[in-house]
Every structure is written in C-alpha cells, then in structure tokens.
C-alpha cells in the first residue's frame, strides 16, 4: 500500500494528463484511410485467363465457399492439318464472402497463379446474398493486387 492516501491516484492521473497533450493515434475513418499492408488478406482476385477449371481451390476450401462450373471448348487449328486443341473455359466462378473464412488455402494451392490476395476491404453489403462475388467482380479486383513487399535478407 502507498504511504500517503491518494498518492497512487495522483500517479495515475499524471499518466492520463501526459496523454492529454499527445497526438491521437486513431484515424477519422471514412475521411482518412489507413493503407493496409501488401500481405493483408482483404479480398480474393481472379485472373480468368489463367484459370483452367482444375477445381483444386474449390476442393481444398475448408468451408466450400467457391462454386465453379466450366465446359470444354474445341479450338480449331490455325493452319490446316494442325491438331484440334481442347481448352477448359469458365462458366461460373463465385466466391461467397459470407462463408469465406479468409484462410487463403485456395490462393496457395492454385497451380496456375489465377487467384491473388488483395488488401481491399471496402465491399460490405446490406444483404448477405450480395456478398456472393461472381467471376467478373472477382476479375475487377485484379487491378488492385499490390506488388509484393520488399523482404529482409
């Protein structure tokens, strides 16, 4: 216990008084925005051209929030006598962000670099169903993918 009654209280008040004259650490959110770190897991972007509909991301998702449908397209050869090539094309690539737990396993397993994390975070919706992002919306996120950060050696 302290010797003089109330001296502990004064010591505490000194701390609060000191803080009264320091700059606030909070930011005034809608007007001032903090820049998230490049590795921040905000939202997943999709590169439609790179996707080969291999379904690895949908299968490894822990809560099955990725919905993929696709079909095979035959591409006629440019020159006569060439082979007919078969290419898988995306019909549907939806991520349900109401279900997503932002673990990033889909981005990690993708063997063709079609999925990327981007630190964008302002995509809240007033209804849950609107959190289902279709492939075009996911493609739009691709422009916001940041450069990888410089690393310590």
């Amino acid at each position: 216990m302290t010797a003089i009654p109330g001296s502990g209280l004064l010591k505490g008040m000194k701390v609060t008084l000191k803080t009264l004259f320091t700059k606030p650490v909070t930011v005034n959110y809608p007007k001032v925005k903090e820049v998230p770190v490049p590795r921040a897991r905000g939202v997943i972007a999709l590169d439609q051209d790179a996707c080969t509909v291999c379904m690895l991301c949908a299968r490894s998702c822990p809560d099955w929030c990725i919905y993929i449908e696709g079909h095979k397209e035959e591409k006629q050869p440019d020159k006569p006598g060439g082979r007919v090539r078969v290419r898988a094309t995306l019909d549907r690539f939806d991520i349900d962000y109401a279900l997503c737990m932002y673990c990033g396993i889909c981005v990690e397993v993708c063997p063709f670099d079609a999925l990327f994390w981007t630190p964008e975070y302002e995509y809240s919706e007033s209804t849950m169903a609107d959190l289902m992002h279709d492939m075009d919306r996911l493609q739009d996120w691709l422009a916001t993918v940041p450069e990888p950060p410089a690393v310590e050696s």
């Binding site: 921040a40 990327f116 990888p148 950060p149 690393v151 310590e152």
Partner: peptide
Amino acid sequence: VKPNAGGGPTQRKVSQDLPKGFF
C-alpha cells in the same frame, strides 16, 4: 512458415521472408 498472401502476379517466384523494416 509461409504467408499465403505475397501479393503480385509473380508471387511464386519471390521469396516470402519477413517484410523489409520488420526488425
């Protein structure tokens, strides 16, 4: 250890070490 958000289209090629300035 490995972060799964490296960012950037070349994420598989870049090293995924601690970001610069961390120390």
